[in-house]
Computed example of a mutant assay.
Amino acid sequence: MRYQAIIFDLDGVICRTDQYHYLAWKQVADELGIPFDEQVNERLRGVSRMASFDIILERYDGTMSDEEKIHWTDKKNEIYKSMLTQMGPDDMLEGVADTLHKLRAMGLDLAIGSSSRNTKFILGQLGLSDFFDAISDGTNITRSKPDPEVFVKAAEFLNRAPAECLVVEDAEAGLQAATAGGMDSAAFGEIAIRSGLGTWNLERFSDLIGIVA
């Protein structure tokens, strides 16, 4: 096989929680009197929580201490997590469940590489708590995408060389991170495909089978 392992971003690849993120950030921004819309939200894709807040604060008329930043990002996360309790297995994107099981049957190592600190909670809601061989997420990294750390650590957890791994991503920052980490990538979703940064382009999630076979 061309690859021995596949590392998946979570949000926008396995499931979609964009709207929950947007609504939670919007609530925080509204309380702070910061203009926030879908255009700003688009810049937050694949970016860590604190880095996302720094982007939002570009429109903030004032200064904020590190302690205050932690307060507001923690508040955003509590709002977001309360929304995530509505999720279930049916929230996996089309073709994901079937394709994941086919990839597992092919003997491939499967991992998650996500900047989210809520990765394990979300996987639990989707019924995938024990499915992946490794999880690299916001709880074990210090640098967010486009830095390759999250994917490099996932490969290390799998005991795989970067060249053996394929990264599946829906964000430009994630595709850049894969390249920086020495890994091929499969771009998934309109924005990712349009970027031209992926080694492969996935019109459907199930197209992965043809790439790795």
Rank of each mutant, 00 (worst) to 15 (best):
Q4N: 12
F8L: 12
F8P: 03
F8T: 04
D9P: 04
L10W: 11
V13E: 05
C15A: 06
C15Y: 00
K26S: 11
V28A: 12
E31S: 15
E31C: 13
L32G: 08
G33F: 09
I34H: 09
E38W: 03
L44K: 10
G46L: 08
V47D: 07
R49Y: 09
A51I: 05
S52G: 14
D54A: 15
I55Q: 13
I55W: 06
E58V: 03
R59A: 15
R59L: 07
Y60F: 15
Y60A: 09
G62D: 08
T63L: 12
S65E: 12
K69N: 10
I70W: 07
H71T: 11
T73C: 15
T73P: 11
D74K: 11
K75D: 01
M83I: 01
L84P: 05
T85G: 00
Q86Y: 01
Q86E: 15
G88Q: 03
P89W: 06
D91E: 12
M92T: 15
G95H: 11
G95I: 07
T99M: 08
L103A: 08
A105W: 09
L108F: 15
I112E: 11
G113I: 08
S116G: 09
R117C: 10
R117S: 12
K120E: 15
I122D: 05
G127D: 07
L128F: 09
F131N: 08
D133W: 10
S136A: 14
D137N: 14
G138R: 09
T139D: 13
I141Q: 07
K145A: 10
V152N: 02
E156L: 03
F157N: 05
N159S: 11
R160M: 13
C165V: 08
V167W: 08
V168N: 04
V168M: 03
V168F: 04
E169Y: 01
D170R: 06
D170W: 01
D170S: 07
A171Y: 02
Q176E: 13
A177H: 01
G181N: 08
G181S: 04
G182V: 02
D184C: 00
A186T: 06
E190M: 06
A192Y: 02
I193K: 14
R194D: 15
L197E: 07
G198C: 03
G198V: 05
L202Y: 08
R204G: 00
I209P: 04
G210N: 15
I211L: 14
I211S: 00
V212A: 02
V212G: 01
